[in-house]
Design a protein around this nucleic acid. Structure first.
Lengths: 337, 337
DNA sequence: AGTCTCAATGTGAGCGCTCACATTATTGGC
DNA sequence: GCCAATAATGTGAGCGCTCACATTGAGACT
C-alpha cells in the first residue's frame, strides 16, 4: 500500500485545465459554471476518484453541512427509532450527521455536548430531550446554531417536534371505558420523562372526564421487569381493578406475566393496553392493544424544520405535533361479570 | 447574540504570554512543557472557554482521533447493542466517533462508506458486518486505515471480533437432548447472515453428534411475525417434533404464539429455545430459555483491537472470539410421554 | 461604434491548527 | 569553569479548501 499523496482540488484543476476555484464551484454546485466546463471537471473528478476533504472545507467555509444529533442511547425503543429515522432524513437532505450519545443526563453533560458540537462546527443540532435534564432551556448564548428538540414536553415553546402522547393514552383509555371498564389502574413510565408524564395525564384526564375515580398508579422504569413488579404491587394493594393502562409495551408484557402467575386471565379478567406498538406486541399472549407512533415522520419533520432554521434563522418558532394512532388487539375486552 | 470571533490558539497564547505552539502542546498533552506553564495555559483555556477546532486540527495534523463505525441500523437488537457499546468504548479511549448507517447492503454501498470515512479522515474503521455483502474482503487498497470487523464470519482471517454463535446453539441443543428430545426442529434466521448460518450449523452439529435425524428447518427473517409463520409451516409439514430451536428470541415469541393457537402447550407439548436474551425474554409466556451474548465486551474488544492496529499497523491479524452463555428458563422441559 | 450589462472564470488571502525545525535556558560531567 | 547533552520554548511553513474580489469575454442596449 503505497501512501500516494492525497488528490486535491489543484490536481483536478490542472488535469481539467481550469482554475482550482472552478473545481470548487463544480463540487459546490455553484450556478455560474458553463455546462461544458462542469462536465469536463466532473469527468476528471470521477476518473481521479477525488474526494473533497471535509476538514479543509469546514475550516475554510462558513458552514459544514453537518448536523449534530444528541441521542438518548439505544436501550429504549422510541429514542433509538428516532435516531435512526433522523439520520436517514438528514442524509437524504445532503447533511452529514454527528451522533453524540448522552452518557447520563446531567446538566453538566449538556454543556459537554455543546462543546463537542462546537468543536465540530455543526450547522444545527437536533436534541432528543425526553426529560428535563436533557433539554436545553436557553442555549442561544452558548450555541451559535439553531437547535430543534425532539420528544420534549408538549407545549414547550422552543423549536420542537413532538408526538401527542397524552392523546395516545386518552384514546386507549376511552376505548377501555367504552368497553365498560370503570376501575382502571395504571403502570406509568418514569415520571421525569415528559412522555411518561403526558401519558399519565392522559389517563387521569379521561377518568376525570367520565367522573371516574382514578385507580392506583404505580411507576415503572419502562422495562418488562418493572412492569412485572408494578403489577404485583397493584395486586397487593387493590385487586379490584378490571383494566390496566401501561406506559409502554414492555411493561405491559411484564404485567401480563404477573397476572398469569396469579391466574388472572387477560382479557377475560383484566384488560391491558400498552404504548409504542413494538414489533413484538402483536405476538404477545394475548396480542396487545396499544398506541403506534410515527417515528419516521418525527425524524423527517425534525430535520426539515432544522434545515429551515439553518437557511433562515427567522423562521418562526413553533412546536410541530404529531398524532399517534390506536392499534386494537385482543388484550382488551369488556370487564368480567 | 453577537457573533463574536471564535477564540483561537493565538488568543490563548497571547493571554498566557506564551507562543501558540506551547498552547498546542498543552492541549495535545505533549510531555515537554513545564508543569508551571501548563497550569497557566490550562487556566487561560478554561477562563476563555477555548475549544480546539477539529477541522483545523484534522487538516493540519496527521491523525484525526476519530473512528468510523459502519452500523447496521437499529431495527435489530444485536447490531444496535453493538453500536451503542462501541461508541462508549471509543469515547472512553478519547476518540470521537462517526456513525454511518448502512442503507442497504450492496457492494456499491461499501464503496460509499469508504468514501465517506475517507472524506472525514478517520484513523480507523469498525465495520459491523453480519453478512457477506457488508464485509470488506480486501479493502487495503482503498482504505488507508486499519479496519476491524465485528460480527463477521467465524473463522474469517481479517482483524475481527466475533461471538461464537455456533457454540451458543450447541449449548441449547445439547440441553434439549439431555432433557430427552430427539425430534428437534429449527426456525432459523436468514441464512445470508453469518450469525444465522452459524446458529444453524450448531443445531445440525449437535444432532449429528448424537446420531439424530435433523428435523425440519424453516427460515425466518428475525421478526416475531416470521417466527409465527415459520411455526405454522412447521406444524403443517410435520407435527411430530417435541422441540424447536429458534434463531432468536423474537421468532421464538412468534412461534409460541402460533403453537398456542393450535393448543400446543410450551413446554409441556413442545419445548423452545431462543437466542439473544433480549430483556423481554424473561417475561414471555413461558419465560424463554435462550443464549446471552456479551455485546459490551464485543464493543470494547473491537475498539481496543482497532486502536492497537492504529498505533502499530504490524499488530498481528487475529480473530477474537467471545463465548456466549446459556440462560435456562421455563420454555424447556422433557418431551411429553 | 461605444458603453453597459452579465455570465464565466481567475487571483489573493486566510481559516486555525500541527509539523519539522531552530533557538534558548538549564543541567551535569570532568 | 567549560562543553555537551537535555529540557523548554519559539519560528516558518503549509495542510486543502472557500471567501471576497478582480478580471475577462461576449451579447444587448442606446
Amino acid at each position: 500500500m503505497q501512501s500516494k499523496r492525497r488528490i486535491t482540488l489543484d490536481d483536478v484543476a490542472r488535469e481539467a485545465g481550469v482554475s482550482y476555484q472552478t473545481v470548487s464551484r463544480v463540487i459546490n454546485n455553484h450556478p455560474s459554471v458553463a455546462q461544458q466546463t462542469r462536465n469536463r471537471v466532473e469527468a476528471v473528478i470521477a476518473s481521479l476518484g477525488y474526494q473533497p476533504m471535509r476538514a479543509a472545507q469546514n475550516l475554510a467555509g462558513k458552514h459544514s453541512k453537518t448536523l449534530g444529533i444528541v441521542s438518548f442511547g439505544f436501550e429504549y425503543y422510541g429514542p433509538s427509532q428516532m435516531v435512526s429515522n433522523i439520520e436517514h432524513a438528514a442524509r437524504a437532505e445532503g447533511y452529514d450527521v454527528l451522533i453524540h450519545t448522552r452518557q447520563n443526563s446531567t446538566q453538566a453533560n449538556v454543556s459537554e455536548e455543546v462543546d463537542y458540537f462546537e468543536r465540530w462546527q455543526v450547522d444545527g443540532v437536533l436534541n432528543i430531550a425526553p426529560m428535563p435534564e436533557t433539554s436545553y432551556d436557553d442555549m442561544s448564548d452558548r450555541y451559535h446554531v439553531p437547535v430543534v428538540q425532539i420528544d420534549i414536553e408538549l407545549g414547550d415553546n422552543s423549536p420542537s417536534v413532538v408526538i401527542d402522547q397524552q392523546y395516545g393514552t386518552e384514546m386507549v383509555a376511552e376505548h377501555l371505558i367504552k368497553l365498560g371498564h370503570c376501575r382502571i389502574c395504571e403502570i406509568s413510565g418514569p415520571q421525569n420523562w415528559f412522555g411518561a408524564a403526558a401519558r399519565h395525564r392522559g389517563w387521569l384526564n379521561v377518568l376525570e372526564r367520565h367522573n371516574l375515580e382514578p385507580g392506583l398508579s404505580v411507576e415503572g422504569n419502562w422495562t418488562a421487569q418493572s412492569g412485572y413488579l408494578a403489577a404485583q404491587e397493584l395486586l397487593r394493594q387493590d385487586a379490584s381493578f378490571t383494566a390496566v393502562v401501561s406506559g409502554n409495551d414492555q411493561m405491559a408484557l411484564g404485567a401480563m406475566c404477573a397476572f398469569r402467575e396469579v391466574n388472572l386471565r387477560v382479557p377475560e379478567d383484566v384488560s391491558i393496553v400498552g404504548f409504542d406498538d413494538i414489533p413484538e406486541a402483536a405476538y404477545f399472549h394475548p396480542p396487545l392493544t396499544t398506541v403506534r407512533q410515527d417515528f419516521a415522520q418525527l425524524g423527517e419533520l425534525g430535520i426539515q424544520y432544522l434545515i429551515e432554521l439553518i437557511r433562515d434563522p427567522d423562521t418562526p418558532v413553533k412546536q410541530h405535533v404529531i398524532q399517534p394512532q390506536m392499534i386494537q388487539r385482543l388484550s382488551t375486552a369488556p370487564p368480567p361479570g
